[in-house]
């Protein structure tokens, strides 16, 4: 089982993802430079990390989405390969059309860096199977553009198809306006594609995988994928 962490100019959570997969979970992992045009067949899961690819110019993820490696990632995603986008990675996957919706500027117009609670909305996915129904995870966010938006018809469709994986909630799992840090439609913090193999989330699970860092809830995402690949 092998993971690949994509490095764009401006990625800054690539080393965190690499560290968790390699040193905490003892998995084989390699970096994939964004100029690559082919990805090793042995890589089972591709991670697009957080950061500020291309300085977030134009729109977040809008330019990274045309990096050479993205055509290959689109091809592999269509073949069913697992792809995870965290924060900026989520924004890139939305811009690439691999995930529905778009991440707009936070309603507060502020960069927010703090722990949030997210409720797991669907546990029957490769990314959440180690979570229990309605489980609440405590994971930090660190973004200015995390305000998820989809139109009403698309929202209904992704709700009906179980594509919403996480919603911002209170610690006891209540999804409410005050638990919504950034103005996201329907408190959405993470979604997957229709095929169920591409996932994006704004919170940073790679930052909470060791007790010394204040929590281990993020491990559930990575161990779910590992279990799915085993």
């Amino acid at each position: 089982m092998k993971f690949g962490v994509v490095v764009f100019p401006g990625s800054n959570c690539d080393h965190d993802c690499y560290h968790v997969l390699k040193n905490v979970l003892s998995k084989d992992v390699t970096y994939i430079w964004h100029k690559e045009t082919s990805i090793d067949d042995h890589i089972d899961c591709i991670v697009l990390p957080g950061g500020f690819s291309y300085g977030d110019y134009l729109r977040t993820g809008a330019i990274a989405r045309f990096s050479p490696v993205m055509a290959e990632i689109e091809r592999l995603a269509k073949k069913g390969k697992y792809v995870i986008g965290i924060c900026n990675g989520f924004q890139i996957l939305c811009e690439a059309g691999l995930l529905p919706g778009v991440l707009m500027m936070n309603a507060s117009l502020k960069f927010i860096c703090r722990n949030v609670h997210i409720r797991v909305e669907n546990t029957a996915t490769p990314f959440t199977k180690r979570c229990t129904e309605g489980e609440v995870l405590k994971i930090p966010i660190a973004h200015k553009d995390g305000n998820y938006f989809v139109d009403g018809a698309t929202l209904k469709r992704i709700e009906d198809r179980g594509q919403i994986l996480f919603r911002y909630s209170t610690p006891d799992g209540t999804v409410s306006g005050e638990a919504n840090p950034n103005g996201s439609v329907a408190n959405i913090a993470g979604v997957m594609n229709e095929g169920g193999n591409v996932m994006g989330m704004m919170p940073h699970p790679e930052r909470v995988c060791e007790p010394i860092l204040g929590g281990t809830d993020g491990l559930k995402i990575f161990t779910s994928v590992i279990e799915s690949l085993s």
Binding site: R59, A62, I63, E95, V102, M104, F149, V150, D151
Partner: peptide
């Protein structure tokens, strides 16, 4: 293709 995102 690039300058605008048709979703929003």
């Amino acid at each position: 293709e690039l300058l605008a995102n048709p979703v929003i």
